[in-house]
Design a protein around this nucleic acid. Structure first.
Lengths: 238, 238
DNA sequence: GTCTATATGTTGATAGAC
DNA sequence: GTCTATCAACATATAGAC
């Protein structure tokens, strides 16, 4: 929100580059995504943002609220992309439910389409989301539910419509494992193809394709396992 | 069931069961597995062990060395079980290579067979292993390689023998994603069946089975994808 | 070996000048 | 709004008595 254009604004206090609030949000995202909550100190964040600890606490009140504000801001575009992709996937097979692979694609691919300002590390959005799933503090888990819970629920429901007969428990487990594949690829030690070697992004796309294929195959294997739920489970073809 | 050790009791264990060193190793494992490296303080560990910070530093020298000693101690039985299971899987199909599912089973199932003293939290071994894969600090990643690297390499090679034609890159990605499934199930928010409701462990076994099935299906889908590597990849049936 | 006491640095948060 | 200065509480590690 821009500052209210006060009538008696004395001198044009030219903000150097973007205002302090924005720089703080950028900084906390970057450090938290890499190091986790406990290792993210206010000093490191404010130093990276080129300001002081007191300025951060003036704007956000506390370390926790600073992180929360950043998460809410950054989760919005990802949630938007995911819901749009899910709607598109469901529209393609309307009036029937979407295919399983299309649903997982709608969940995964937007993670790799995030592109904010060129000044940002290109993968801050992804690493941030992944960190929310692996960081131990209870408050981080709550924030994860807070910023991703609603959209995750939408995908859960869409998947429930696409698969017939599987009990909710087994389907929930399968979806959870699919999350695991995604989270681990992002937060793990996987080394992405160097953009200088792979300027067109062909290799990157291949990795994302593999990710979707892996999750889909795993999920289908679970909800269709005859031994687990004989003769009652199937994938809706259309 | 003894009260959860997270309660900060001024542990006056009149009869020190086991020596101080052992109690320190137990304590650091428990807290680190739950909270991660940065959130694991020497104070919390030594308090849980019913001793002092100086005693811990006398025995282990530093926080890092205390954790390293604990990891080496705890990783040994898991590594043993895994290698034994892998050898058994390869023996069954000798002289040919083992089947993919048998290899993944040999990697995953031992995680759930760990049972140390009854005094321990039953899943400390699992949670510990998982934490090594998600904790940010560089030194934790090094320790993970230190205690699990050799055995992981064995499984990588066994998998290379079981799958024909897939390039190493794709196979490495597939194996990494399989790790992700396991790690996320253990370190994530998944709620295991209550042992009081599931005393025989039937439900637990079912979950582990699902885990293996998911990973196997995902891996096979990647290394056999015709689009990725047409006509050259196959799974050795025997 | 284990303790108390302490050294030395970092943390999150606040007070108050400007 | 942003800063410097300061706080109490925490961190890891060490010194020395017993």
């Amino acid at each position: 929100m821009p500052p209210p254009a006060s009538a008696v604004r004395p001198v044009v206090t030219e903000a150097p580059q973007g205002d302090t609030k924005a720089r703080l949000l950028d900084a906390v995202v970057q450090i938290f995504a890499e190091q986790g909550f406990h290792a993210t100190s206010m000093r490191a964040v404010t130093q990276l943002a080129g300001t002081s600890v007191s300025a951060a606490n003036y704007h956000f009140g506390s370390k926790e609220e600073l992180l929360r504000a950043a998460l809410i801001q950054r989760a919005a575009p990802l949630n938007g992309l995911r819901l749009k992709a899910l709607a598109s996937a469901e529209a393609q097979t309307s009036p029937g439910p979407a295919r399983v692979k299309a649903i997982l694609e709608a969940f995964i691919v937007p993670l790799f389409e995030l592109r904010t300002d060129p000044q940002h590390q290109e993968d801050s959005g992804r690493a941030l989301a992944a960190r929310l799933y692996v960081d131990p503090p209870e408050l981080v888990k709550k924030m994860q539910q807070e910023v991703f819970g609603a959209v995750t629920a939408e995908f859960r429901e869409a998947l429930g419509r696409a698969v017939t007969g599987a009990d909710r428990e087994q389907l929930g487990l399968a979806l959870e494992l699919s999350f695991g594949v995604v989270v681990h690829l992002i937060s793990g030690r996987f080394v992405w193809p160097d953009p200088r070697v792979d300027p067109s992004g062909t290799k990157r796309k291949k990795v994302v394709d593999s990710l979707v294929s892996f999750a889909t195959a795993g999920l289908v294997a679970l909800v269709c396992d005859e031994q687990q739920n004989p003769k009652k489970v199937g994938i809706r073809k259309k």
